[in-house]
């Protein structure tokens, strides 16, 4: 491998629907401005977006899949956080 690697960037697009920026893929680019342009050219060809974030892939801190149980299991039993846990008589109406 003589070719130097060009950094990888993760691309997040905020769509027209007003939703939050959402991860949609990645691009290779030597710097941030080029990454932004590449993201625009690659991921908004069909009018998908109104705003783009690019983040160096190496800067993403991810949770460890091995810790999935300790991180996410405890919430499964906390059903009192969900509205359906509470019973309200129908006559009261929507709440």
């Amino acid at each position: 491998m003589t070719e130097k690697t060009t950094p990888l960037w993760e691309v997040f697009i905020r769509s027209r629907t007003g939703m939050a920026h959402r991860h949609c893929g990645s691009v290779h680019a030597a710097d941030a401005e080029m990454a932004l342009q590449a993201a625009r050219d690659v991921y908004t060809r069909r009018g998908e977006g109104l705003s783009i974030w690019v983040v160096p892939s190496s800067e993403i801190i991810a949770s460890d899949p091995a810790q999935k149980d300790e991180l996410f299991e405890p919430t499964a039993s906390k059903i009192y956080r969900h509205p359906t846990f509470y019973e309200i008589p129908e006559e009261v109406g929507n709440m």
Partner: peptide, 14 residues
């Protein structure tokens, strides 16, 4: 190749 090298060189310089 020279284009990709140039982009990387510029990014390093900056």
């Amino acid at each position: 190749a020279w284009v990709r090298e140039a982009a990387l060189a510029y990014s390093r310089k900056r």
